[in-house]
């Protein structure tokens, strides 16, 4: 199940962007459909990794983008539910384009100042 390898890679990249004294609280990942990432399996892998790394609650927001296909006959680029689909021109041959990206878009962090303000407001 490659979702676990991908979860580890996401965490490595995310950690490299977390400043000192800050805590990672969420990651946003976007994947093309060709990557074959199963969202439920990805969430399971992420939770297992968070438990293994003792990182607590770090939310994973995963977006799998739709298939983008380019018609062989007319060149039209269209969205589809599957990798093999029929173009409106009638051609049944269309190749996937830009469907294999895998990007960490952003992370959420709590910094030490935010945490101390939060603790102060909770104790009042």
């Amino acid at each position: 199940m490659h979702e676990f390898s991908i979860a580890e890679a996401v965490l490595d990249i995310a950690r490299s962007h977390v400043p000192a004294d800050c805590v990672l609280t969420a990651v946003r990942v976007e994947a093309g459909p060709m990557r074959g990432i199963e969202p439920d399996a990805m969430q399971w892998a992420w939770q297992a990794l968070m438990a293994a790394e003792e990182l607590g609650e770090v939310r994973l927001d995963l977006t799998v983008t739709p298939w983008r296909l380019e018609c062989h006959a007319c060149g039209r680029v269209f969205h589809a539910d599957d990798a093999i689909a029929t173009c409106v021109c009638g051609c049944q041959a269309a190749r996937p384009v830009e469907c294999d990206h895998l990007r960490l878009l952003s992370i959420d962090i709590d910094d030490a100042l935010e945490r101390s303000v939060c603790r102060a407001s909770q104790s009042n």
Binding site: I6, A9, V10, I13, H101, L102, R103, L105, S106
Partner: peptide, 12 residues
């Protein structure tokens, strides 16, 4: 606080 990253996950 959100930090923009936009990096290839498999960069390493």
């Amino acid at each position: 606080m959100q930090v923009k990253v936009i990096e290839n996950v498999l960069k390493l």
